[in-house]
Design a protein around this nucleic acid. Sequence first.
DNA 1: GTACAAGTTAGAGTCCACTCTAAGTCAATT
DNA 2: AATTGACTTAGAGTGGACTCTAACTTGTAC
Lengths: 118, 118
Amino acid sequence: MNMKEFSLTTGLTSHTVRYYEKIGLLKNIERTKSGHRIFSHADVIWVEFITRLKDTGMPLKQIQQYAELREQGDHTATDRMLLLEDHAATLEARLALETQHLKKLHDKIAYYKTLISS
Amino acid sequence: MNMKEFSLTTGLTSHTVRYYEKIGLLKNIERTKSGHRIFSHADVIWVEFITRLKDTGMPLKQIQQYAELREQGDHTATDRMLLLEDHAATLEARLALETQHLKKLHDKIAYYKTLISS
DNA sequence: GTACAAGTTAGAGTCCACTCTAAGTCAATT
DNA sequence: AATTGACTTAGAGTGGACTCTAACTTGTAC
């Protein structure tokens, strides 16, 4: 899979893909003898996972750490799990907070409603 | 209430407070005749509301719009309500997505657990 | 009245996550 | 063989939201 296809499949621009490689999120991407990148299905899966972490607010720095561990092989599984557990806890806390915020927002909206109809 | 007190109460640094004033989130802050700002309780409430919106991911630009409407008085209540309703909907959608992401994260963690214990 | 902490301004710097540019090479099509 | 589009690199630029600096003035405590 070439750059075009990969960027279409993952939804990242080619710029972003190269950026991700530069900062170490993507490692060991194959190359043609002329230097063009060749992406595999595994790369797609991995980027999808990166995107998921990103969408839950994990900073790229932390995703990098995960990538680092991942590259070091199976013996880092526990560390990776701990990292994910940590993030899951963060996410849960944020969800709780956001739910609260949302409730207050609805209260305010309700208040506006009475204000308007009066 | 002077700058120090205000920044302690709201949790914003004085730099951020001045920045918020500069970009129009805080308006009509009183001044002593020597130019120092005097904040009121209403300012605290308002900043808390700004913080709430910010914490739910509303960009400052949009909060500015709200501030603008707010300054124009009661006849903008409907507009403000619509803005909040819009944001509430956005937030709800994001919460739903994040909940899904969290679930997948837990799945992955569970997978790591079986991997490790095997 | 003298320290010195806290306030003021305009504007520069920082961090994150891209996003784009320039200058050049490679691949596919006619 | 020539055009066109996609690829490569290093590095500059962007936008959001601060965060800090410099140079100066004011307020408070002794």
